[in-house]
Design a protein around this nucleic acid. Structure first.
Lengths: 368, 368
DNA sequence: TTGTACGCGTTATCAT
DNA sequence: ATGATAACGCGTACAA
């Protein structure tokens, strides 16, 4: 007669009611023992806790408590893409860091909600999320996920891509994408560059890798991408360079490999660009890599600016000239705004965080 | 008589029962409309959905559904420290990426649970997490959070620091820390280094920055730290170097700044070490920085090895020699193991992932 | 200080 | 194909 190794271990979990029965007290008393210790004699509380320990009762069930209280005790963060992509994106990770700080401050959990599962956008995840509110990050305008969030009728904060349509009841946080982008491009033209290539994010939810003509450019569905592109445009046109002459390469993913692909194509154009503007640092890193592989020195033969100023930008080789934005602050602000809404406050007016150009060593005057 | 701007917007959310009443059917039918469309006439389903739309009902409430079904629909990831630190740790982020992939595969949400709130460890977060199971990452042995997890009687997977005590019922995933560390140190001694300094993580939950003597070293509470230290030790002793002569600096945080502090102290020792072994890449990056500030070239004057092989290691300057482990794979494995447990499977035997030394340019033979 | 009673919003079962 | 009913585990007035 062997001993069951799982003996007692996965025994059905005890409930509050059972603890009450064990002690010979009412369920209300047990509940109070956990939630309002002051409503109890020290003595009964002792007894309750002791019985709980004996029965292996770990306290009120979070789900039941959530139902009863009408609060889930967590905030949801909705990312436009698969969760695994989010973690691969340094800017997103920094943003999450900020949101998590706000969640911690408020004693709330942080539920990550994929905006897309195995490639397909699926509102189901939004519907199934046990949360008290949403922080919505980087959604394409008109994305159906936003509709799903709105339908939940929960407080929500839209970050970086606040489609105007549904925003009446949602708080909004963004950064000065256009100003930052303009500063980046002006820096380049100011140095004397006239042949510039743009390394862009995906322009629409169904990304296509490759050079993007005016038609494609007109489709930009991501607000901050559109604003950055406009910033670049206004800067080059301000210096008398025709926007039509500026090649824009659309990267289907935001990773260094794609940035490298973009650079290879753009640098194959004759006459070769003397500078590249990347819409993110991730893409810029790849572009630097590709340039180096092609035997081009940065910034000697080619200048490169990024966007985001992720920590690695300062440590890359060469250190990257880029547009700084405070991702952690952005997340913290979004999180706090949501927490405030949870507390019953009305949505505030949209917040816009500043950006600023950080000049490092990846840009210089063109040769000759 | 002004118009309330929030008119109708935050109107109490409709419930399933109300939808049923509106349509004139039973709640069961509405439930079926959402959960088993095949149990319904096309016609009634239409009616139900239409009424839902009219009333602004977004589908079954996740909390109530969770209570009724006995499943929360999410898995919890417990990190030893504050969440905001987790996001600042590239290895942890990679790990989360893997876990999130497993969660996505299973259609589960991912709830991040802080192991520590505002500096204090607080089991409350564990108790309050509405999840079906936990992935526990990098806990110190004997940490009370593990007890809290065990008390919840939910399936759990312990990663990297599986205290043997509570592990009977928990799955376990780790990597070959000792072997990896040994390889790193052997590489250095093999190159001819005899004066080596160690840049270590915190040794115990209450970290102390500074040189750690044998007493302090004996307190190591983190399993993988202990194993790595043992690996280093066995390698240097294998080459006839007394472990007592090897200075160990304990960094209170795992970030480059602390690595730099460590390096400054270790390199101030006379005779100066010719090589530094860092227990993480993050610390190694800081050490490189500090060495450079002190006018030491890497690897000319000083060799440095890291541990983890985070992506930046390949891009740092110089590219870092380090011990590779597959963090994403580790997270994916842990996540899948948990999902399997959720499906009723018994815990498997502990899994150990391989590590391997990746030699890049931060190490060379000592001068002279 | 403690107990009673009800409801939170849903789903599973069993009937019809 | 649809409905009635009983849980799920807990929190909170309110009464005692």
């Amino acid at each position: 007669m062997g001993v069951n190794p799982a003996e007692g271990v996965r025994r059905r979990r005890a409930t509050l009611k059972e603890v009450a029965a064990e002690v010979g007290v009412s369920p209300a008393t047990v509940s109070n023992a956990y939630n309002r210790p002051d409503q109890l004699s020290e003595e009964s509380r002792e007894k309750v806790m002791e019985a709980a320990r004996r029965l292996g009762y770990a306290g009120p069930d979070p789900t039941a408590r959530g139902l009863r209280r009408g609060r889930a005790g967590a905030i949801g963060v909705l990312y436009a893409d698969r969760l695994s992509y989010a973690f691969a994106d340094p800017a997103a990770v920094l943003f999450f860091e900020g949101v998590s700080r706000a969640a911690e401050e408020a004693g709330l959990g942080l539920l990550l909600v994929p905006g897309s599962i195995s490639g397909r956008h699926d509102p189901e995840a939004v519907r199934a999320a046990a949360v008290d509110g949403f922080v919505v990050y980087c959604m394409a305008e008109g994305d159906q996920m936003i509709g799903a969030v709105r339908d939940r009728r929960l407080p929500a904060v839209l970050v970086d891509d606040p489609p105007e349509v549904f925003a009446e009841d949602m708080s909004r946080v963004g950064v000065d994408d256009e100003g930052g982008a303009r500063a980046a491009a002006e820096h380049l033209v100011g140095l004397g560059h006239r042949r510039i290539g743009i390394v862009s994010y995906e322009l629409a939810p169904q990304p296509v890798g490759g050079l993007a003509g005016p038609d494609r450019q007109a489709e930009v569905a991501f607000r901050s991408t559109r604003l950055r592109l406009e910033g670049y445009r206004s800067a080059v046109e301000g210096m008398g360079v025709a926007w039509e002459s500026v090649p824009v390469y659309e990267c289907p993913e935001n990773d260094p490999e794609e940035g490298a692909n973009a650079a290879r194509v753009l640098l194959g154009i004759d006459p070769r660009p003397t500078a590249l503007v990347a819409i993110s640092d991730q893409l810029a890193f790849g572009a630097i890599e590709a340039a180096r592989e092609m035997g081009l020195s940065v910034p000697g033969d080619l200048s490169i600016v990024g966007f985001d100023d992720v920590p690695e930008a300062a440590r890359s080789n060469p250190p990257l000239t880029t547009v700084h934005q405070d991702h952690v602050e952005k997340g913290l602000l979004a999180g706090r705004l949501l927490v405030a809404r949870l507390g019953g406050e009305e949505p505030e007016t949209p917040k816009m965080l500043r950006t600023r150009l950080v000049v490092r060593d990846s840009t210089a005057a063109p040769r000759g």
